Amino acid sequence: MLDTRFIANDIDLGAQAVDATQSVDIYRLQVGRHGLLKAEDERQLGREINETISNLVFHLISSEAGLEKLEQLMTDYLFGYQNKDGSVSKRWAMSHEPAFIENLISSVIDLIRVTRFMNQEDSDEATNAKHNLAALLNMLSISRSYLVDLIDDDMQASPSLRKQLRRYARLRNQLVESNLRLVFSVAAKFSSVGVPYNDLIQEGNIGLIKASDRFNFTKGYRFSTYALLTIQNNVKSAIQRKYPLISRPGYLQEKMSIIREVRNAYIQKEGRKPNLAVLSELTGIPLSQLERIESFPNFSVPINTSGASDEDLTLGIEIPDKYQNSAALYEEQQQKQQIEAALAELNSREKQVILMRYGVGYKKEFTLKEVAEQLYLSIERVRQIEKKAMRKIMNE
């Protein structure tokens, strides 16, 4: 496995003997040993990775338990791209909606189960279904680390499976090592924000590994293009964690940086500070939102900081307890635990159907027709899902 703390595995730094500057310099030398991949080499590496992942999928679905785990992984992933009412989340970028792809996955998995039941696992239909399922997995760009995590100790007893796992680790490491220069270029941009440079590199390496687990070469762009955003997000998250106990959200911090840069540029040019109307026009931030941002304090204060007066005051916040009756609170907690325990037995689609049918978390109970319309299913299919879910809940 690739060491996210220090990728130059072949050098013993002696953590206590080498300071941060020396470690970064030695690390930079190790990065220079790995050459950049050409576009064709990158595509070939992507094809080998997809082939290895397909082999892992075939091993996984060779048992019913593995097939259920894979189905749960894919449906949970798609469920995360849907709002509570079943509508598509804004960050969904594929041409087909999540519900359509979920139905397609269910159809392919049902076909695999049917061929297994009929002892036709070696038929052309079963083989095509397995390849289609592996292709759908690659198309969704689900992190391959999740797929590897599904493979339990019993499955790893197979020598051929262990060989495929080692092959995937080698291919992924090759993709990561050939793009380590990206981490240096991103870390250099944030080197003056107060976070140690070697910490920025470490966080950038983690982002690079995450990108390598999701990259799909069939999309047509280079890996460096895809990985750059993931590396930047990881580095920015590390910087945000460096702030005091109560810190500003990342999106707000970015807007405040834009405002500060525009204000400084205006002062340099005009010799005076811009008013909020001018600042709003230059930054493109609505005036009402700009007023709220400007009203925030320029520093963070821990919630237990004492006041300046003689009285021992703190900034602690007291939250009143709305539950005066402890018996009522206990009963409500028990009910929540029972509901959560019952829903834990269901997959994401069954859980969504039950929640909508009984109005849990919604303002009303949905009819079969309304649920079918929201989840892009037939009424009969919703009825079957609800019946199956209730059997699981009732332990029939």
Rank of each mutant, 00 (worst) to 15 (best):
F6L: 14
A8I: 03
A17V: 15
Y27R: 02
Q30P: 07
Q30I: 08
G35V: 15
L36T: 15
D41K: 07
R47L: 14
E48W: 04
L56S: 04
S62A: 11
K69M: 03
Q82M: 09
V88R: 09
R91F: 13
R91M: 12
A93T: 14
I101A: 00
N103W: 00
S107D: 03
D110M: 08
R113W: 10
V114C: 03
F117D: 04
D124E: 07
A126T: 06
N132V: 11
A135N: 02
L136M: 08
N138T: 05
M139A: 13
M139C: 11
Y146A: 02
P159N: 13
R162S: 12
R166S: 10
Y168N: 11
Y168I: 15
L182S: 08
V183K: 10
S192P: 01
V195T: 06
D199R: 03
L200E: 13
Q202Y: 13
I209A: 09
D213K: 03
Y221Q: 00
Y221S: 01
Y221D: 01
R222L: 14
N233C: 08
V235E: 10
R241G: 10
K242C: 06
Y251N: 06
M256N: 03
S257E: 04
N264P: 04
N275K: 05
L276E: 00
V278N: 00
T283K: 03
S288C: 13
S288P: 15
F296T: 04
N298H: 05
N304P: 02
D312S: 05
L315E: 05
Q324W: 04
N325I: 08
Q337E: 12
E340G: 11
L346I: 00
Q352P: 15
V353Y: 03
I354W: 01
Y362F: 11
L368F: 07
S378Y: 04
I385V: 14
I393S: 11
E396Y: 11
